[in-house]
Write a protein that binds this DNA or RNA. Structure first.
Lengths: 151, 151
DNA sequence: TGGCGATAGTTGCTTTTGTCAACAATAGAA
DNA sequence: TTCTATTGTTGACAAAAGCAACTATCGCCA
C-alpha cells in the first residue's frame, strides 16, 4: 500500500466527515445533544438496555452516563425500571415521548441522507451504495475499538 | 430512493464512524487534543493562515480559537508574526517543533490507515479506493456546510 | 452460610471545552 | 476625517466530560 493510496483514503475521510458531518447528524433541530440522541437510538433499537451496557457500547464514563440518563428521564423520554434478577441494575426503556423523539430523529437523519443524494440518478445512487458495501465488507475493524479505555 | 437504501447508507455511516473512529484519529497518542491537531494540520498545510481564516475553516468561536492558539504558542508549536499589510491580523505558522509534531500526527494517521487495510489483497485495496472515489464524486456537498453558524 | 472481591449505579468535585459579550486596535469606505 | 466593519484578546460563564469515593448488591468459594 503506497503513500498515494493512503493519501487518497485520508482525503476520503476528510470529505466524508465534512460532507456527512457525522457529528451533528442525529440531533439536527431537536433539543437533544448528540450523546443524548445516541442514547435514545441505542436504547430504542436494543430494547432492554442497562446502563453498564451503554457505558461499553457508547464508551462513556459511567458517572456522566448516569447524569445523562437522569436528564432524559426528567424530560420524560425514558424510564428506569428495577431489574428483577439483578437488584443493582435498572433496565432502561423509552417512554412514548421517547419513541416519538427517536422517530423524529430518524426522520431527520433520513431526510438528510435523501438531500445528499437528491441530485443523483437512481443508477448513481446504486453505485454509491454498492461502493459503500465494498468498503464495509473489506475494511477491517480497528482492533483498538475492542479495548475500551473507559472505566 | 427507498427506505432500504437509506437504511443501508445510515448503516454505512455508523460503520464508518466507528471503524475509523474519526473523532480521535489525528491526535492518537500525542499530547494534543483533536482541535489542536486540526489546527496544526490546517496551519501546516495552508502555510500562511490567519486566525479569522481558521475560524471560518474550522468553524470555531474566535475567542476559543484565540486561546487555543495561545496554548499552542506557549507549547512552542506555532508562532504569531505581525501581518505587514493588516496590522490587526497576525500570521500563524508552525515552528520546527510544530512541524515535527505534525509529521508525527501524519505518520500515526497513515499507520492507522495501513492497519485497517493490512488484511486486504492489493486488488481489494484498489476496489475500496475506487469505491471511495465513486462516493466522493457522486455525493453532493451538504448545503448546510455553506452557511457557517459561528460568529 | 457468611465473608469478600467484583460489579451497577449515584454523587461530589474538578477539569476541559466551548460560548457570549465587551473591548482595543486597525481597516476601509464615505 | 469620521463612521462602521473587522481582527483578535479577554473575562465571565455554561455545558460537557472525567475522576474518585461511596452504597448496594452480586456471586463465588472456603
Amino acid at each position: 500500500m503506497n503513500s498515494q493510496d493512503i493519501h487518497q483514503i485520508r482525503a476520503f475521510d476528510r470529505f466524508y466527515t465534512q460532507t456527512l458531518h457525522l457529528t451533528d447528524k442525529y440531533h439536527l433541530q431537536t433539543t437533544l445533544t448528540l450523546v443524548e440522541a445516541r442514547l435514545l437510538l441505542e436504547i430504542g433499537e436494543n430494547g432492554r438496555d442497562t446502563a453498564i451496557q451503554l457505558v461499553q457500547e457508547l464508551r462513556l464514563d459511567k458517572g456522566y452516563l448516569s447524569r445523562l440518563i437522569t436528564r432524559l428521564e426528567t424530560n420524560g423520554l425514558l424510564q428506569r425500571t428495577p431489574d428483577e434478577r439483578d437488584k443493582r441494575a435498572k433496565v432502561l426503556s423509552l417512554t412514548a415521548a421517547g419513541r416519538d423523539q427517536l422517530a423524529l430523529i430518524n426522520r431527520r437523519a433520513d431526510d438528510q441522507i435523501r438531500r445528499l443524494f437528491v441530485d443523483l440518478t437512481p443508477e448513481e445512487t446504486q453505485r454509491v451504495i454498492a461502493a459503500m458495501q465494498v468498503i464495509e465488507t473489506h475494511v477491517a475493524v480497528d482492533p483498538q475499538l475492542k479495548t475500551p479505555n473507559q472505566q
